[in-house]
Design a binder for these strands. Sequence first.
DNA 1: CTCTGGATTAGCT
DNA 2: GCTAATCCAGAGC
Length: 208
Amino acid sequence: MKFKPKKFSLDHKKLDQNFYLQPTLKVARELLGKIIVRQFNGQILAGRIVETEAYIGESDPACHAYGGMTPRNKIMYLPGGYAYVYFTYGMHYCFNVVTEKEGFPAAVLIRAVEPIEGIELMKKFRNTNNIYNLTNGPAKFCQAFKIDKSLNGTSLLGDEIFIVDSDDDIKFTIGRSQRIGISAGTDKKWRFFIRGNPFVSKVKIKSK
DNA sequence: CTCTGGATTAGCT
DNA sequence: GCTAATCCAGAGC
């Protein structure tokens, strides 16, 4: 299958804060198909979101806010519409969209996107020419989109990084599973993905 | 194809 | 001190 970037226009409507204030599972589902845009140095990177995971509240054992606020997770307590970026495994970043009302810690992890714009730059950042290996994982997506801790706490209503609606007539069905790479909270099926999309990450359920 | 271990450090206990 | 919302290379089948 040959990859053809789909049409993309910056005229598409930027998602407003009301979208992010909604229940996290709804946001996680509805982010599928939407387009995440990153601007820096006058360059544009964009991709269609094809895989997400929800992390919800202090009682979700897989959520970073499990057990209460700490210096790392405090961004999750902001009202919906902020970026929560964290560093893990000594070398990787992961990007989340904060959801729900202020004081309730919840976020949606962007696990994979389908590259649309700025593909050559993504290949450079990822040091690979294989388009299917650019953004099919949460840390790969961050590397391809030049996302690091400096974006932690950034508003998604600004211009550095934001998400726009898709007005294409793209039809897809949504798949659902347990979350990937966690050892607690595996009973919850809070991962969502576009069924059949070749840019969804490889599934490896952590066995424990 | 599948499976295993190493990389490398911030954040918590 | 231990582990992590990951990724990659290498080994074996």
